[in-house]
Design a protein around this nucleic acid. Structure first.
Lengths: 112, 112
DNA sequence: ATTATAGGAAACCAAATAGTTTCATGTCAA
DNA sequence: TTGACATGAAACTATTTGGTTTCCTATAAT
């Protein structure tokens, strides 16, 4: 049932786009093993809280962070799962750099 | 010598940004094991040759394709090397989904 | 009850992006 | 040498992006 993500719940931002921005990569890195409220998070970045908040929304759209309301604050934490898609995408190209490394290895070995 | 890529040859587009666009991912996929001239390439995409050409330039800036002039045509081919950066970036997060899978596994196993 | 704190929503802005059309240049073919 | 072909450059446009400021709402603390 439900062909993955359709109509109703189409993620507005995919993981490729989400990680394209360096600030957002920084956010992921920061939330790796801490759940943090927006204020604490935004202290780590040279921009307004609102800007950080928007980045967090984009990450949430891509499924890369989860949010939880606690009292008057919203806490965010990493969800690395969507990165699996990236890993699968990357895997396809793996043999191409492996080929290169192979070639280099042969070249080096033929040098003695 | 030369701390990687500095001043003079700063790549205007990094690999994260380069692969953010679906058309560009399509280009990489197409050039995986063929060297192709622009005209042949652009036939595979629903946009003008010029637009494709610009995407190719962005990929070239990120080092993901190499170009070679042959007579009056310019042929492009994949260079997967810069994807290693992405792989390293991803590797950092690997344990986070592994933890999840672990947890799931324990949960399933405790079910009999 | 009043004040302070945490966060999102809205309106706005500048710059970047993804595309177009038109033009110029270099190379191949007749 | 004349014409056709392959491509990049330039100028232009619409949309998206990344940021801001200003305001509103909900929760906590006094």
């Amino acid at each position: 049932m439900s062909k993955r993500n359709q109509a109703a719940s189409l993620p507005k931002h995919d993981v490729f786009q989400a990680i394209a921005d360096p600030t957002r990569r920084g956010l992921l890195r920061l939330l790796v093993d801490q759940e943090m409220p927006v204020n604490a998070i935004s202290g780590h970045f040279p921009m307004t809280r609102t800007a950080v908040s928007k980045h967090l929304r984009i990450l949430a759209d891509a499924g890369l962070v989860k949010e939880r309301k606690v009292g008057r604050e919203t806490r965010y934490r990493l969800d690395a799962d969507p990165l699996l898609e990236l890993k699968r995408w990357l895997a396809f190209y793996e043999r191409y750099w492996e080929n290169k490394l192979e070639a280099l290895k042969r070249y080096v070995e033929s040098e003695d």
